[in-house]
């Protein structure tokens, strides 16, 4: 007789005081001073607890965390290639489904969490992530977004903002802006094309209780879920390492980052300021934007303004026939 697969039900944390004291992501790793992704990892781990399996595709949170024989995780963790976190997670989830069904594993379905950087999520890792979401595996895909390939020395990724100076988009006479492209919208990629996904959220390390609860809510959903977490990187964005949380907050205050949830088609927004500050204030605090002119900053402001008019909400545009002028 096949056994029913039981899933976990994680409680929401009502305040920072109710967040568990236990750490599942322990000291001893080699991340940089002020590392945003490391703080994200700590908060996500507090959210999931120990009945979890984490997958770490290649990236900062693989290389800087895992020194052989002293890895910092108190739950099972496995490296995946930067390409295939979604596929390996699919295999693990499928294995647990069959092992629980056959009575070979006695517990509830573990929380299966991919902790992928922006490259491992929406660039080289996109195919595997999309496959996992399409097939409906009960796993959470987290994109900790430090807006570059930071591990290899800060190269541009599809999450790198317009105008950023990276080691693959250096500003020069011919290309004064540095990066000329605008980033992909990760959440819209997931929402727009994956009917098996019912919960998507953005979060910021500057709002830890909100972040923890979004991770828990995502895990409580059956099926694939996605949480996109803004994780500033002092080394890559070139700001003082003590200002990581400040930079993350300023991103929300300027509209460079918007915290929202998408649940079964409905959007709700969190931490929306009464009035947005100009993006220039955010950009001037980071040396990666130091080369930009006022015209470039105005271009960024226009991009953000357009995005904020309908953050996350699909805009209904009039359909134009091919022969109409």
């Amino acid at each position: 007789m096949a056994k029913a697969v039981e899933t976990q039900n994680l409680e929401m944390a009502k305040s920072a005081r109710r967040v568990p004291q236990e750490e599942w992501y322990l000291p001893g790793h080699r991340t940089c001073q002020g590392c945003g992704p490391a703080l994200t990892y700590k908060l996500v781990s507090k959210a999931t607890g120990g009945d979890s399996i984490f997958l770490g595709p290649t990236g900062c949170m693989y290389v800087a965390n895992t020194s052989y024989l002293c890895s910092p995780w108190a739950y099972p963790w496995m490296h995946t290639q930067i390409t295939n976190a979604g596929a390996v997670a699919s295999g693990i989830e499928a294995a647990y489904q069959v092992l629980i069904r056959k009575g070979k594993y006695k517990g509830k379905l573990p929380n299966i969490v991919c902790m992928a950087g922006d490259g491992g999520s929406i660039d080289i890792g996109l195919q595997a992530m999309s496959g996992m979401m399409y097939r409906g595996h009960d796993a959470l895909f987290i994109m900790y977004d430090n807006e570059s390939y930071a591990n290899t020395g800060i190269q541009t990724s599809p999450a790198t903002p317009y105008g950023a100076n990276t080691t693959f988009t250096p500003p020069g006479k011919a290309i004064p802006e540095g990066k000329v492209l605008f980033p992909k919208d990760a959440c819209q990629l997931v929402i727009g094309g994956h009917p098996a996904v019912h919960y998507v959220a953005t979060a910021s390390l500057a709002y830890p209780v909100d972040l923890i609860n979004k991770v828990r809510k995502a895990l409580n959903y059956k099926g694939p879920t996605f949480v996109h977490i803004h994780s500033p990187c002092p080394k890559g964005w070139l700001f003082d390492a003590k200002k990581t949380v400040e930079v993350a907050k300023l991103a929300i205050e300027t509209g460079m980052w918007v915290n929202y949830e998408w649940e079964n088609g409905e959007y709700t927004y969190q931490h929306t300021p009464k009035e947005y500050k100009p993006v220039a204030g955010y950009m001037k605090g980071q040396q990666r934007f130091a080369h930009l002119t006022d015209a470039h900053i105005a271009k960024m402001q226009a991009f953000i303004d357009a995005k904020l008019k309908a953050p996350g909400i699909p805009v209904a545009l009039p359909v134009q026939g091919p022969r109409e002028s």
Partner: peptide
Amino acid sequence: YGASAAGA
């Protein structure tokens, strides 16, 4: 290999 890592 993910499934194998989980014991299947």
